[in-house]
Simulated scan of single mutants.
Amino acid sequence: MNLTLSLDFQYTTSIEKLWSALTDSNKLSKWVANIHTGQAMENDFKPVVGHRFQFRTQPTEWWDGIIDGEVLFVDAPNQVSYTWVSGGEKHTVNWKLQDLGDGKVNLHLEQTGLSNAQALNGAKYGWSKWCGQLETVLEQ
């Protein structure tokens, strides 16, 4: 099975500020957190094609706390795409930013390669929670 998660989020911000929150490792660590513990995830993300990165957090009994990735595509400040490898699953995460005018930006997430409904539902829960936290980062 090869499922795709597709979500849209709207933020009152500038496209540049949203791009920075998606691609700056310090800002990423403020909203991409361990779903189970809420602990921030250290990362060495850079928006450079071919850059290999990791998100790291405290392991749990269900997960080793590591997400590996490689940047596949960058078109600042409109689109960034990377692999997302964790727990035996390998997905592709693609973010598209669209300036809607009036200080609003649409953020479209597409995560492909999900192997089953449980992985899809887990990804939907995780990104929905994270993108709620992302709003807080944008307001700072």
Rank of each mutant, 00 (worst) to 15 (best):
N34V: 07
S20W: 02
V80R: 01
G69N: 06
V93E: 03
I66G: 07
G87F: 09
W95P: 08
P77R: 00
H36L: 11
D102G: 08
V105M: 02
W62L: 05
V105Q: 00
H91Q: 14
P77F: 00
Q39S: 09
W31L: 01
T37F: 06
D102V: 11
A40G: 09
A40F: 09
W19V: 15
N34Q: 07
K46Q: 15
W63Q: 00
T60E: 10
Q79M: 13
P47L: 01
T13N: 05
Q39W: 07
I67K: 01
Q79A: 15
V105S: 02
L18M: 12
S14C: 10
P77Y: 00
V32P: 00
Q58Y: 04
S14L: 04
P59G: 10
Q39N: 06
W31H: 05
E42G: 07
K46T: 08
H36M: 10
P47F: 01
D75P: 04
V32R: 01
E70S: 06
K90N: 09
P59N: 03
T13S: 15
H91F: 11
S20Y: 02
K96C: 02
S86Y: 09
N43K: 07
A33K: 09
G101V: 08
K30Y: 04
Y82W: 12
L22H: 08
K30E: 04
D64G: 12
A40E: 10
A21Y: 11
H36W: 03
Q58S: 15
S86G: 12
T13E: 13
P59I: 15
T12K: 14
W31E: 05
L28R: 00
L100V: 13
W63H: 08
T83Y: 03
D68E: 15
S29K: 04
E16S: 14
R52N: 06
F73P: 04
F53P: 04
V85R: 10
T92N: 01
I66A: 10
N34A: 11
S29A: 14
S25M: 02
R56W: 03
K96R: 13
N43H: 06
G65C: 08
T37P: 00
G38L: 06
G65K: 03
R56E: 01
T92Y: 01
S25H: 05
Q54N: 08
G101Y: 06
E42N: 13
G65W: 04
V93T: 02
W95N: 13
G50N: 02
W19G: 11
S14Y: 00
Q39L: 07
N94Q: 13
F53D: 12
G69R: 03
I15Y: 00
K104I: 15
G38Y: 13
Q39I: 12
Q58T: 15
D99K: 05
G50H: 11
L22Q: 02
W63C: 04
K30S: 07
V48H: 09
Q98V: 06
N34Y: 02
K90A: 15
Q79D: 08
W63N: 03
V105L: 03
Q54Y: 00
V93R: 03
T12Q: 14
V32A: 06
D99W: 06
N26V: 07
A40V: 14
D68A: 11
S81M: 13
I66E: 07
V49I: 14
S25I: 04
V71D: 10
S25F: 06
G65E: 01
E61Q: 13
